[in-house]
Computed example of a mutant assay.
Amino acid sequence: MNDFVTESMESGIQVLCLNRTDKKNAITLDMYQALTNALRSAEHNDQVKVTMLYGLGGDFSSGNDINEFVHIAQTPEKMEAIMAFLQVLSCYKKPLIAGVEGRAVGVGATMLLHCDLVLASREARLQFPFVQLGLVPEAASSHLLPQLVGHQKAFEILVLGEVVSATQAHEMGLVNHLCEEGEAYKLALFYAQRIAALPVEAVALSKDLLKFRGQDDVQMALMREGRIFKDRLRSTEAHQAFTAFLSRNK
């Protein structure tokens, strides 16, 4: 595993934790690779019945590491590590549960669209700030979000990039259940335990039936977004947005 991604097993539940707390769990290429490896390994491990995603330190994830993205923009082929993770995530056959505290930004929010259950603190906040960074939506969010909330609401969320509160996310169906601050891990683990106790094959087949009809569309959206995203990384708009973002942080 990676220093910033920890893995543990609890009674058939694979728990993957983002642990780069000083950067609000911003995800690096090495972290993507670690997550990809962990999910691929779990697919072939009969001991794993459910996978749970969680962010340590009070935030789920602040999204991609912008400092690293500045360098990726010069060598877009490095995006393959990100695409590999998104493909594994979108095709993952076992139940996938997320426990969300604090901020879930960018890919930290879009990856939730691929989860089977999302449990969140009432203080959690989702944000999809791709356009503000001169980019476009990713992780098939341009396909999945309109299906969930309709075109107009999806346009507002993905283009304006305003913060979506946990209550709003719950009302829109992005989040299954809410809990008090600091309780998301416990609640996600509770649901993971419930699922792990069910007949494994019946659960897997049920997930496949639920996702089967739209899987080709998801993969097509993922590839199309990826191509445009890669081009946008080299755009003047993205370069200016990254520079402004990093200046503000300094």
Rank of each mutant, 00 (worst) to 15 (best):
N2Y: 01
F4L: 14
V5P: 01
V5T: 06
T6C: 10
E7V: 01
E7I: 00
S8A: 13
G12I: 06
G12F: 09
G12W: 09
V15S: 08
C17W: 00
L18H: 06
L18W: 09
D22T: 13
N25K: 05
A26L: 05
A26R: 12
I27A: 08
L29T: 02
Y32G: 00
A34D: 07
N37G: 07
V48W: 08
K49R: 15
L53G: 04
L56Q: 14
D59G: 03
S61H: 02
S62N: 09
S62A: 15
G63E: 03
D65N: 11
I66G: 00
N67Q: 11
N67F: 09
V70C: 12
T75A: 14
P76F: 09
E80N: 11
A81S: 10
A81F: 03
I82Q: 12
F85W: 12
Q87T: 12
Q87W: 01
L89K: 04
L89S: 02
K94P: 00
P95W: 12
L96D: 01
L96K: 04
L96Y: 02
I97R: 06
E101F: 08
R103N: 08
V105N: 09
G106R: 01
L112R: 03
L113A: 04
L113F: 05
H114F: 04
C115M: 06
C115R: 06
V118G: 03
R122D: 12
E123D: 13
A124K: 04
R125Y: 03
R125V: 15
V131W: 00
L133R: 03
L133C: 05
E138Q: 13
S142Q: 07
L144K: 11
L145F: 04
Q147S: 08
Q147K: 15
G150T: 02
G150K: 06
L160N: 12
G161T: 05
V163C: 09
V164M: 10
S165D: 06
T167S: 10
T167W: 05
H170L: 08
E171W: 02
M172Y: 13
V175L: 07
L178R: 07
C179K: 04
E180M: 11
G182F: 06
E183G: 00
K186Q: 15
L187T: 02
A188M: 07
L189I: 02
R194M: 15
I195G: 00
L198Y: 02
V200D: 10
V203G: 01
V203E: 01
A204W: 07
L210H: 05
F212L: 13
R213Q: 14
G214S: 12
Q215S: 11
D216G: 03
D216A: 14
Q219W: 01
E225V: 03
G226C: 06
R227H: 12
F229R: 06
K230Q: 15
R234V: 01
S235Q: 08
E237A: 14
H239F: 11
Q240W: 02
Q240M: 10
Q240K: 09
A241N: 04
A244W: 01
A244V: 03
F245C: 10
S247Q: 14
R248A: 14
